[in-house]
């Protein structure tokens, strides 16, 4: 592949592709553990002791028998199961860590969004594969929800791109030198975090895995399959939090402490806010949420993009 970023060094170009990829994957997994530990702590009320629970669950699922169902579409089921964590890790590739990304493309933001779209396909396949009612219903719900969230999420990413004058995530971080983007684009920030939670079918957006359909997409998963799906979702949420910190909260900018520490702190803050806020809400039913997304969020994010575009033209971000 031709060299994509001449001006900004990438992690891959400094450390070599394989070590850099391993480091980024490890960071992704750690972020995933962080997210699911925080989530467990709030849901079970265990507090700090929940920290090891994600590891315990992972271990347990590894020991568990994989579920076989009747007349499954095994090929597509397995493809979907493998794709969820892979796509989640790929979305980590454009998240700036210590000021650099694993690889830098001229369309990082679109890359991130494309991984979310691939997650759709993967989760739908997970719902389709086992040939079971609840599972497929979960898959359908995910698609309907995804369609409604795709546009607002895309517009919020575009807003960031407009302000930074670039789709490269390191450029976006650099463009927030004076002022964090969250100040001028709060709507985009909230929509980005909320939309990503919806794509990760988590918390109030967990209708695809809701208890009302016996776990939906996850209802027929056990053992490794379940682990892959849940881990992929946690990694994706972690990647989203890190991305939100980079795109809206100035990334690694901050006084006294080294940059990566700041980025980590901001990421943890986003995770904490997401879990704390999200778990205060009941499940938002898809048929209500979908209309809200189309009728309210799309115009709202467009308006946000307009405001930012006017600011950008007037030289506010220069």
């Amino acid at each position: 592949m031709p060299e994509l970023a001449a001006d900004v060094g990438t992690l891959a170009s400094t450390w070599g592709v394989l070590p850099a990829a391993l480091v980024v994957a490890a960071v992704g997994v750690l972020l995933g553990v962080l997210v699911s530990a925080a989530d467990r702590a709030v849901v079970t009320g265990q507090g700090v002791r929940a920290g090891v629970e994600p590891l315990r669950s992972g271990m347990q699922l590894l020991l568990e028998q994989r579920r076989r169902t009747l007349a499954p579409d095994r090929l597509l089921w397995r493809v979907g199961g493998a794709a969820v964590p892979v796509v989640a890790l790929l979305s980590m590739a454009v998240v700036p860590l210590a000021g650099r990304t694993l690889w830098s493309t001229s369309a990082d933001l679109v890359w991130f969004n494309a991984m979310e779209a691939l997650l759709w396909a993967a989760v739908w396949l997970m719902g389709w594969g086992p040939n079971a009612v609840h599972s497929l219903t979960g898959g359908y719900r995910f698609l309907a929800q995804g369609l409604a969230y795709e546009l607002p999420l895309m517009f919020s990413l575009i807003t960031v791109g407009v302000a930074a004058g670039s789709l490269r995530s390191t450029d976006v971080v650099a463009a927030q030198d004076g002022l964090w983007f969250v100040v001028t684009m709060p709507v985009a920030f909230v929509v980005f975090v909320g939309g990503a939670a919806a794509f990760a079918f988590w918390g109030p957006f967990a209708a695809p895995t809701g208890a009302d359909i016996a776990g939906g997409v996850t209802s027929e998963l056990s053992g490794l399959d379940r682990l892959l799906l849940l881990a992929g979702r946690a990694v994706f949420l972690g990647a989203t939090a890190a991305m939100a910190a980079a795109l809206f909260l100035g990334g690694d900018a901050g006084p006294w402490l080294p940059g990566p520490v700041w980025h980590l702190l901001k990421t943890v803050a986003v995770v904490a806010g997401l879990v704390w806020g999200g778990r205060r809400l009941p499940l938002l039913r898809p048929d209500r949420v979908v209309e809200l997304a189309w009728v309210v969020l799309v115009p709202l994010t467009l308006l946000q993009a307009l405001v930012v575009a006017v600011l950008a033209v007037s030289g506010f971000y220069a």
């Binding site: 994509l4 493309t105 001229s106 369309a107 679109v110 890359w111 969004n113 494309a114 779209a117 691939l118 759709w120 396909a121 369609l147 795709e150 789709l167």
Partner: peptide, 14 residues
């Protein structure tokens, strides 16, 4: 053609 590649993946997946 990074942008076009990513957009193709995005659009076609949906």
């Amino acid at each position: 053609l990074v942008y076009l590649a990513v957009v193709t993946a995005l659009m076609m997946t949906i």
